[in-house]
Design a protein around this nucleic acid. Structure first.
Length: 199
DNA sequence: GAGAAGATCTCCT
DNA sequence: GGAGATCTTCTCA
């Protein structure tokens, strides 16, 4: 079976980050890779805004690393952290406004065996239940930084799910793994989904 | 050019 | 539950 869904249009991303983040839940993260097609459903996100968010990379202004966040919406921002891990973001809001949504967890749907091999695990819930885990499962590296998520020909894109995939309850809570601005309720996840990184 | 911190994960106790 | 791994990026001298 092959999924050929429509990518989410750029105007979807060109809105308030706090609207885009919860609406990204349930969308499909589609990665076309040399050994096959890898698809995961987004089940957890976090919003990051440069202007009023001290925890964001872009809070202190534009640097070579975060330049993508200042660019057009619908672009992938991938960065390397802790010496081990990549994290995947989708850039949001108007060009010149530094904002992005961090994809924190996915539920593997297609290419599951390949993802488990990439991760070196056998439990399905261990494949994509964390920002560093899902990038490894989907083989996302800095090469995907600046990739257009709205381009049907792109190797990495975000697509509309089937109708059945849109039925779930969203939970809004505080963000994880940051020291600054922990009070903001900018993390969203699918209620009851076992692939969410933390309850 | 050197030092420190980091949107994490895994293993060990 | 806690700390190490490991390296990129930023900041400051």
């Amino acid at each position: 079976m092959s999924i050929a869904p429509e990518p989410v249009p750029r105007r979807f991303y060109n809105r308030d980050t706090l609207i885009v983040a919860p609406e990204l839940l349930g969308k499909l993260l589609v990665r076309r890779e040399s050994s096959g097609l890898l698809v995961g459903k987004i089940v957890e996100t976090e919003a990051y805004r440069g202007v009023d968010d001290p925890a964001s990379h872009s809070y202190r202004g534009k640097t070579p690393r975060n330049a993508v966040m200042f660019g057009a919406p619908g672009i992938a921002y991938v960065y390397f952290t802790y010496g081990n891990h990549y994290c995947l973001n989708a850039v949001t809001e108007d060009e010149g406004t530094p904002a992005a949504v961090l994809i924190r967890a996915v539920e593997p749907l297609e290419g599951v065996d390949l993802m488990m091999r990439n991760r070196g695990v056998e439990k399905l819930t261990e494949v994509g239940s964390g920002p560093g885990k899902l990038t490894k499962a989907l083989q996302i590296t800095r090469e995907q930084n600046g990739c257009d998520l709205t381009d049907p020909a792109s190797d990495l894109k975000i697509c509309e799910p089937s109708e059945a995939g849109k039925v779930f309850e969203t939970v809004r809570t505080t963000r994880i793994g940051i020291r600054l601005a922990q009070d903001k309720l900018w993390r969203f996840y699918v209620k009851g989904n076992p692939h969410v990184s933390r309850k």
